[in-house]
Design a protein around this nucleic acid. Structure first.
Length: 279
DNA sequence: CCACGATCCTGCTAGC
DNA sequence: TGCTAGCAGGATCGTG
């Protein structure tokens, strides 16, 4: 599942590969539902002849800025990948969009599960409005300990549910939420507003460290995630709790527990991550 | 404000 | 071996 580190890795890869390139043709659209803001032929008309000026990331959205101030926002959801390949390469299964660049390469959107979406926005304002309605602050951006403490203070929900809420922090998904909470030694069901200042500091540090280390390892490839060049990440070998039910906690040896929280698989150490009042 | 369940999809796996 | 049922989950929406 592409979360912030995977989207960031892809954005960096795409930046090196396609900034400055001009789109010569748009094809391969076999699933119009992935284009919530445009009809396939409208999208093709809007994109052909445009040059890609910048590649950015906001939360889990990958942003392509075009030379006419329009933009594309791509959300890969569970299984979507954006890859750059020679235009003559055979189209792999589940390819739903191909932007043919004039230099003989394609940027293709491949998504077996068909959850991913590609949004077209004609103006920067339309893009900004869309993002502002959905995303809170960047966890690796302006977020300081004081600001995090203030945000947590008014929330009475469970800590993990809050980390998954993109309006609270942008970019954290199920895998990194569990990794962050383990690193911070905080139980996923802790009431957000109950954290002490010391605990907020641990959480803040864990958010930064877990995400930055995952980016340094080019993301986590559990099954389908690949970067812009089609390469898997390295972080899956370094997961501390996610998917490790029954295996010993790497800090204290206690078997890792798994439970469902809001219909999401949740892994944690019942010893290191004590519930409410446990410290 | 918060919880819960349904929805969208298909590859994979467990179980028979 | 071959089939099938069920699981996985990000975002959104409706209900309590």
């Amino acid at each position: 599942m592409p979360e912030l580190p995977e989207v960031e890795t892809t954005a960096r890869g795409l930046r090196a590969l396609i900034v400055g390139c001009r789109i010569g043709a748009v094809g391969g659209i076999d699933w119009p539902r992935m284009l919530p803001t445009s009809a396939p032929d409208e999208l093709a008309r809007a994109l052909v002849g445009r040059t890609i000026q910048a590649v950015e990331r906001r939360g889990k959205y990958l942003l392509l800025r075009l030379d006419d101030a329009a933009s594309l926002a791509v959300h890969r959801k569970m299984t979507g990948n954006l890859v750059v390949v020679p235009s003559v390469a055979p189209r792999q299964p589940h390819t739903h969009l191909a932007l043919s660049l004039e230099d003989g390469r394609d940027m293709r959107f491949v998504d077996p599960r068909k959850f991913g979406r590609v949004y077209y926005f004609p103006t920067p304002e339309a893009l900004e409005r869309f993002l502002a309605e959905r995303l809170g602050p960047e966890p690796l951006g302006e977020l300081g300990v004081e600001r995090l403490a203030e945000l947590l203070r008014r929330r009475r929900g469970r800590l993990k549910s809050l980390l998954l809420n993109q309006l609270f922090l942008a970019g954290i998904g199920n895998l990194y939420a569990d990794e962050i909470l383990w690193a911070a030694r905080l139980h996923p069901e802790r009431t957000a507003s109950s954290l002490s200042l010391a605990e907020v500091e641990r959480l803040h540090q864990a958010v930064q460290r877990v995400l930055l280390e995952a980016i340094a390892r080019r993301g986590t490839s559990l099954s389908t995630y690949r970067d812009a060049s089609g390469e898997p990440g390295e972080n899956q070998a370094f997961l501390q709790v996610y998917g490790r039910a029954g295996a010993p906690c790497l800090r204290c040896g206690t078997p890792i527990a798994r439970k469902l929280l809001g219909a999401r698989g949740t892994w944690f150490c019942p010893q290191c991550q004590r519930p409410e009042g446990g410290g």
